[in-house]
Amino acid sequence: MNNLRIAPSQESPTITFNTDGHFKIEGISLVPNVHSFYKPVFDWLDEFEKNLPPKIVVELEFEYLNTASIHTVVTIIKRLVSYTEKNVDLKVIWCYAAEDDDLLENGQNFMNYVNFPFEFQAR
């Protein structure tokens, strides 16, 4: 199984999902059709979860997202959270610019949507 790497565009984020359990999504997500854009991620997770690593660390560093993207990324994180029931140690890190209170609040809302504690890192 290969690592997943989706290059960024002016409307979509960089997505890096490594088989060793290091995941990162960063940038903007304004894609007009979230189903088609994020399908490779869900397909990759279908394979990945057949042989889960003991630890997964996912970093989320968004500039901004549209509501459909928020919904889809939340679905992805919920899926990762479900792996904790299989004894996977999951850490979700929400990265934001230190002076950006709006992005911090966005992360807190994300955390509420998935009902799993995040680590917040101001950068």
């Binding site: 500039e63 901004y64 610019a97 002076e99 950006d100 209170d101 709006d102 992005l103």
Partner: peptide
């Protein structure tokens, strides 16, 4: 910056 992010969203 917070207002800029809010406005963009």
């Amino acid at each position: 910056q917070g207002l800029i992010s809010k406005t963009k969203a």
